[in-house]
Amino acid sequence: MNIDLSGKSALVTGSTEGIGFAIARGLHEAGAQVVLNGRSEAKVDAAVARLGGVARGRAIDLGTAEGAAELVAAEPAFDIVVNNLGIFQPSDFFETDDAVWERHWNINVMSGVRLARAYLPGMGQRGWGRMLFLGSESGFNIPADMIHYGVSKTADVALARGLAKRMAGTGVTVNSILPGPTLSEGVAEMLKDEVAAGKTLEQAGVDFVKAHRPSSIIGRPATVEEVANMAVYIASPLASATTGAALRVDGGVIEFII
């Protein structure tokens, strides 16, 4: 299988590290001209330098309507948009105030809504495009300690499905990807106390999965590259018959077979 994205332009939001950077790197290696995004100029510049080539960056906060408008004004068209930007914050439901809900909703959901509204019409007019949303297995297995996060990820999956229907017949596909526990920088930060106590990061990840995601079939976290591989395929012309799908890279955590 040869994935060739030469001549395609791609935006990956929240892509200075973790899954987002791995997706950006995968698209870049397949020949796409990639724009990385983050809020910090320094982190964006560092990520662009790591990627090299013709990659460029936009340090813009896409968790706001103003940030989305700024990006669209600077970058009016893309062939591929990966809505990876997202946050998570463990918090008991009864202690989670409106501000936390609104922050997760704006960053995890509305950032994608705004970019879809801006970029999908142009993709449709050109007769080709790929839009991806990073959901999560938590959108199906709603975590009791992060209900607000799970709800936002369920919304991402629903948004992708609805947009796929809206873009029917245009040559544009819209899908969501559902990672499970993944050894990104964010998860490494969450496990730092166990690592400080003497465990390797990999072993701490395995212990976390066994304790908190016991339905995992692979029994370990995924790597960011394993998630990125799915995204790069779905972004390619080879995936033209896949749209409206919620594609699992969850290690078998979700307990159903379809």
Rank of each mutant, 00 (worst) to 15 (best):
P90R: 14
D92L: 09
D92M: 13
D92G: 10
F94N: 14
E95T: 14
E95D: 15
T96R: 02
D97M: 05
D98L: 12
D98S: 09
D98Q: 05
W101S: 11
E102S: 09
R103T: 11
H104Q: 10
W105K: 04
W105H: 04
N106R: 03
I107R: 01
I107C: 10
N108Y: 06
V109N: 00
M110Q: 12
S111K: 08
V113P: 12
L115H: 04
A116Y: 08
A116H: 10
A116R: 09
R117H: 10
R117W: 05
A118S: 09
A118N: 03
A118I: 08
Y119Q: 07
Y119W: 09
L120V: 12
P121H: 12
M123T: 12
G127A: 00
G127F: 11
G127P: 05
W128G: 03
W128A: 00
M131A: 14
L134K: 10
G135L: 02
E137W: 03
S138M: 01
G139K: 06
G139S: 03
I142R: 01
A144G: 07
A144F: 09
D145I: 09
D145W: 11
I147N: 03
I147P: 04
Y149E: 02
V151T: 00
T154F: 02
T154V: 08
T154E: 07
T154S: 12
D156I: 01
D156F: 08
D156E: 01
V157K: 05
A160S: 06
G162C: 04
G162F: 05
G162E: 04
A164Y: 08
A164N: 12
K165W: 06
R166P: 14
R166V: 14
R166A: 15
M167I: 00
A168I: 10
G169P: 15
G169Q: 15
T170R: 02
T170I: 07
T170Y: 01
T173P: 08
T173A: 03
S176T: 07
L178I: 05
P179V: 06
P179D: 06
P181L: 09
T182M: 04
S184G: 06
S184T: 04
V187A: 15
V187T: 15
A188W: 10
L191E: 07
D193V: 12
V195H: 04
V195Q: 04
A196Y: 06
A197S: 14
G198I: 11
T200V: 12
L201H: 13
E202N: 13
A204R: 03
G205L: 01
F208P: 02
V209H: 04
V209M: 08
K210H: 15
K210P: 11
